[in-house]
């Protein structure tokens, strides 16, 4: 059974015309799907909609999203909370900004663990957090737990975000522009780290990025979006070599060394 089925969804804010239409894809274990597009293409809206995180008045107006075969539209509030951060996790462009700046990372990390493991003691939660941080190549876990986000570098913040997301080894990771806000050198490390997640935990990843190079490097399947519509979709090689839309071909031309080694 697939982990996630996105079936022909449209997304709408209030009574405005839909800003995204006709997006479909399926996820199974270890699969990476890259959604590529410029800002305003609706790619971020799609992943946020999957996790029910659209701001004020945004909703899926058509189509369905199935998680483990179950229609997410039928979820209760508490079922949603169980899934978020445990069954499906999300990492963001700047994961540091997704953490309250005036509380320590540790206090929020423990709070998060205790939402999903209410019976776990504080000490165990702390140990789990430090352990996860270590796994995500953040060896100095104790120090990070004491820190505030502003005290960490961009790359470290992003790793903390990945660690948070991977705490419960979710089956599905939604990555929203995970490499766009950090230095080029560190981008490569983060990309490699996400690839490792698939190898070690068999995590399925939906990767949203404007960087078609990154998407091409990581994805099994690609979806190219523009103005809320799907321009191209298919497995990576089809999209890269036999793109149907003029838009996709233009995007590809803009990447200097798409045939060479450096994708990132």
């Amino acid at each position: 059974m697939d982990i996630l089925n996105v079936q022909n969804i449209s997304i709408q804010y209030g009574n405005d015309p839909p800003c995204v239409t006709g997006v479909s894809f399926d996820m199974n274990e270890g699969k990476i799907v890259g959604i590529v597009g410029e800002s305003g293409s609706g790619k971020t809206t799609v992943v946020r909609a999957i996790l029910g995180l659209l701001p004020g008045g945004g909703k899926i107006s058509e189509g369905r999203v199935l998680f483990n075969g179950e229609d997410m539209a039928s979820y209760s509030e508490s079922r949603w909370r169980d899934v978020r951060g445990s069954g499906i996790s999300m990492i963001f462009q700047d994961s540091g900004a997704m953490i309250n700046p005036i509380r320590t990372i540790g206090s929020q990390y423990i709070e998060y663990i205790k939402i999903h493991r209410p019976d776990m003691s504080k000490a165990d939660a702390y140990a789990l957090a430090v352990d996860t941080l270590t796994k995500m190549r953040l060896p100095d876990g104790d120090n990070i737990m004491k820190s505030y986000t502003y005290q960490l570098s961009g790359g470290m913040r992003q790793r903390v975000g990945i660690a948070l997301a991977m705490t419960f080894e979710p089956k599905l990771l939604l990555a929203d522009e995970p490499t766009s806000a950090i230095d080029v050198t560190i981008q490569a490390q983060i990309v490699r780290q996400m690839m490792e997640l698939r190898e070690r935990f068999n995590t399925a990843i939906v990767l949203v990025t404007h960087n078609i190079g990154v998407a091409a490097y990581m994805s099994d399947e690609m979806i190219v979006m523009q103005y809320g519509k799907v321009m191209d979709r298919g497995d990576r090689d089809t999209v890269l070599n036999h793109a149907e839309s003029e838009y996709t071909r233009q995007l590809l031309q803009a990447v200097p060394e798409i045939g060479g080694k450096r994708y990132v």
């Binding site: 946020r48 996790l51 909370r81 978020r84 963001f92 700047d94 997704m98 005036i102 709070e111 948070l164």
Partner: peptide, 24 residues
């Protein structure tokens, strides 16, 4: 953004308001 972050980690609306938004 951290409000979306907290929601994405499974925090309830209530907890987000009382533990994050109001104090901040």
């Amino acid at each position: 953004d951290y409000v979306i972050g907290a929601k994405g980690r499974g925090e309830s609306e209530r907890a987000i308001l009382f533990k994050h938004v109001f104090p901040n």
